[in-house]
């Protein structure tokens, strides 16, 4: 495919710009995420970090620049978006589980109907995944019967059921009560340790230090700073990142 042969990046942003009306929400983003790499994206509210990862599976479209995911250029007529999306798991801040489906049905719905995996096989895999996220006993529970942390773990299992190459997390713990955050982060750590390519929008520094190879700091739609978690958290290079860190560290 055009433009993709030059690089091995699983996710490649090259000079990407996006506007909401006259607001330049993504400014000249250039970023490459390697296979099996875990990148944490942080920054103040409204800095464009959610928009950044929503572009990767086409929930948002870009105005100009190139965005190549798994060797396929987004916006290219040859790229089958629905097909590409099956390779990209997306975990939402508000879980977005299907309320009319049980936990198991949530996990198996897309594998059965999109991946065309036989039901019995999908259900077996679904049970295993729910067990893996610690919810073996909640297979037949509906989302309303689950706590926020449990719902988010089902949502992660739902993504894993598609056997994706990439997992994107959009503030996965922001909507959770404090005591439920660690159960979700533990699952994310386990996924990362299995070698998943991940981009995670989060302010959870413990998670970043534990599994991320890189932290990307965004402000006003631009990537301001990027480095290893240790560099970034211990020796932030810019005033804006220092100001941001002092705010999230104070709490």
């Amino acid at each position: 495919m055009t433009n993709s042969s030059s690089s091995t990046g699983m996710i490649e942003f090259r000079g990407v710009n996006k506007w909401f009306g006259t607001l330049n929400v993504l400014r000249d983003i250039t970023l490459s995420v390697e296979p099996r790499e875990v990148v944490v994206v942080c920054g103040p509210s409204g800095s464009g970090k959610s928009t950044l990862i929503r572009c990767i599976n086409g929930l948002e479209t870009i105005r100009d620049g190139d965005l190549v995911v798994d060797g396929q250029r987004l916006g290219d007529p040859a790229t089958n978006m629905a097909r590409l999306r099956t390779e990209i798991g997306f975990v939402f801040q508000s879980f977005n589980l299907y309320p009319h489906k049980t936990a198991l049905e949530n996990v198996t719905l897309a594998p059965i109907h999109v991946r065309k995996i036989p039901r019995a096989e999908a259900e077996k895999a679904g049970r295993e995944l729910l067990a893996k996220v610690g919810l073996a006993d909640k297979v037949n529970a509906y989302p309303a019967q689950l706590s926020g942390g449990q719902q988010q773990r089902v949502a992660i299992a739902r993504c894993l059921g598609m056997r994706p190459k990439i997992m994107l997390f959009d503030e996965p713990t922001s909507a959770l009560d404090p005591e439920m955050i660690s159960e979700v982060l533990d699952v994310m750590v386990a996924v990362a340790e299995e070698g998943m390519t991940m981009m995670v929008v989060t302010h959870e520094m413990g998670f970043a230090r534990k599994v991320a190879q890189r932290v990307v700091f965004m402000d006003a739609g631009a990537i301001v700073e990027s480095g290893t978690p240790d560099e970034f958290f211990s020796h932030p290079k810019t005033d804006r990142s220092r100001a941001f860190l002092s705010k999230i560290l104070r709490h």
Partner: peptide, 30 residues
């Protein structure tokens, strides 16, 4: 039906018809 339901369907690679049939209409029906 909340926008997030549509997005969950989109993100898992469902077509418009699949989203309607499997996600939106069963909820809208009630």
């Amino acid at each position: 039906i909340p926008r997030g339901q549509v997005e969950a369907g989109v993100a898992s690679g469902m077509t418009y018809v699949q989203r309607m049939r499997l996600v939106i209409l069963p909820q809208a029906f009630k």
